[in-house]
């Protein structure tokens, strides 16, 4: 597995920086903001292209419907905001006026999952993936670091139709370099193994990697998949991996219910693929304010929790033999 390097660039910044560069490549698209431009970093686009930047005020629902109007003639719109406000406050605009007519509106969404940490529940987007993946025509991506954010900005713009791209408040690690490839419906197998598959994305991917490293050190052969394309999901790769290892853990910074794990379980059942299955996420509960690592500890999302679940899974199988 590639060595992780500490990062000081949050995905929300890497994504916005690429958006500014892309402003030259695609001269048609515009950006909508709702007064958190210094937080989403969309202000960088304003600095470069003020005539293509629309500051709509603190009015997410109206902004989203206006984005639909702007996009109705084919002009792509990037809408910046926090996950909760884009996916919940503005949900009906996203559903009925962007997804239904399949418009080119791209949601650049910061503070995904519990990464808003200290701000508390009103700012944590812990149901965003369930909502966005439920919408027909919507694509959902979740980069974990700078290189994947930059690459997925391009994929976002090249994908026809609406996209929800989930970004994070803080920086964690750099995993990829510029040579890594990303595509709509793709995933990356970060390390190969035979005993256990761990599927994750975004911030929790780093917990998965840490867990995998510890498990590998104790002799367990773990395969880690970065399922950055949450919808469409790369079932081809994930299904093959589960068939090979016979065990899968899905770990996400999201409610357990209606997250990626539900889709994987559904596909396994449909295909008759039998394997040990478990999943980590918020257990039908809201989180709270707190430092990010402490939240992961308290709500069962840390590397340690993944290791515990894996150990139990491996033990059960041994006893059964």
């Amino acid at each position: 597995m590639k060595k992780l390097v500490k990062s000081n660039k949050p995905t929300r910044l890497a994504f916005a920086e690429r958006m500014v560069e892309y402003g030259e490549i695609n001269q048609d698209f515009v950006v909508f903001e709702a007064d958190i431009g210094y937080s989403t970093n969309s202000y960088l686009f304003d600095n470069q292209y003020p005539e293509r930047y629309f500051q709509m005020g603190i009015a997410e629902f109206g902004m989203m419907a206006s984005a639909a109007g702007m996009a109705a003639n084919g002009r792509p719109v990037v809408v910046a905001g926090y996950g909760v406000f884009l996916t919940m406050r503005a949900l009906e605009s996203v559903r009925s006026f962007i997804c239904y007519p399949n418009l080119n509106v791209k949601l650049m969404s910061s503070h995904g999952g519990t990464t808003a940490a200290i701000d508390g529940v009103t700012h944590q987007a812990s149901e965003d993936m369930a909502l966005m993946t439920s919408l027909p025509n919507m694509h959902v991506f979740a980069p974990c670091d700078s290189a994947s954010s930059r690459a997925l900005f391009d994929v976002t713009m090249e994908t026809q139709g609406p996209v929800y791209c989930r970004l994070m408040r803080d920086s964690y690690y750099e995993l990829y370099d510029e040579s890594a490839t990303f595509k709509c419906g793709g995933s990356n197998v970060l390390c190969e193994g035979d005993d256990l598959t761990i599927v994750s994305y975004g911030d929790i991917l780093f917990q998965a990697i840490e867990a995998a490293e510890e498990l590998r050190a104790s002799g367990v052969s773990v395969e880690v998949v970065d399922a950055y394309s949450v919808k469409p999901l790369d079932w081809d790769t994930i299904g093959k991996s589960i068939a090979k290892t016979g065990r899968v853990i899905v770990a996400e910074g999201h409610q357990q219910r209606n997250g990626m794990a539900y889709e994987i379980a559904c596909r396994m059942a449909k295909q008759g693929l039998s394997a040990k299955f478990d999943h980590l996420g918020l257990k039908d509960t809201f989180a709270e304010s707190g430092a990010y690592p402490l939240l992961l500890d308290k709500y069962g999302l840390s590397a340690k929790h993944i290791i515990d679940v894996a150990s139990e899974m491996l033990l059960e199988q041994e006893l059964a033999v």
Binding site: I118, D119, G120, V121, T122, H123, E288, S289, G290, A291, L294, L295, K298
Partner: peptide
Amino acid sequence: LRKINSILQGHPDMKS
């Protein structure tokens, strides 16, 4: 304030 397990959440919370 804003710390884990606190009664003082980052934004006002009627339950805490």
